[in-house]
Design a protein around this nucleic acid. Sequence first.
DNA 1: ATGTCGATTTGCT
DNA 2: GCAAATCGACATA
Length: 201
Amino acid sequence: MPEKLPRSFYQREDVVQIARDLLGKQLVTEIGGVRTSAKIVETEAYKGSTDRACHAFNYRKTKRTAVMFEPGGVAYVYLCYGIHHLFNIITNIEGEPDAVLIRAAEPLEGIEEMLARREMTELKARLTAGPGSLSKALGIRKEQTGVDLTDDQIWLEDYGETISSELIIASPRVGIDYAGEDAKLPWRFRVKENKWVSPAK
DNA sequence: ATGTCGATTTGCT
DNA sequence: GCAAATCGACATA
């Protein structure tokens, strides 16, 4: 039987380690009465205290980032470029605004529903490759910000699959040139030679 | 296959 | 005002 990841998984201190650990876990949503799930194959870590690329850098708190200061184990969904809903998992203890962005996953359950949400007819990697696409396929919208990940709307399951470290590729995050030196940190993780990751750079 | 561009909320200058 | 943790449409080659 799969195990729902407990709050303690998210409340650990090292957000980079959590980003690695999330590879191979299943992201499950039950929104609108339909269960959909996908196996995570690509993530990125953001650390509020020291990382210029993070929205809550230097503990900057706004209406949008307030949820990042909550104890680990809740969802942070924000709108990027005015259109895309990007799904993040808040980690660490209350007051430490760290997050992991889920960038890509392999579709497993509810594929018909995911295709319908994306207005697609054929199963292609595009369905869930890239943070905006993935959220749309799983039915996640910014209204889900603050949802408790140990509750029954959005959660993660562990099927005991571990991705060995040789299969994890670390690389710099994209689209964050404004972050200066921090843009070079290798905090993006993906599963090697996996067809479901977003286009490699 | 590669490039440019528009969509359109949020927060900083 | 403008640029952003993006994507897909459309153009050209």
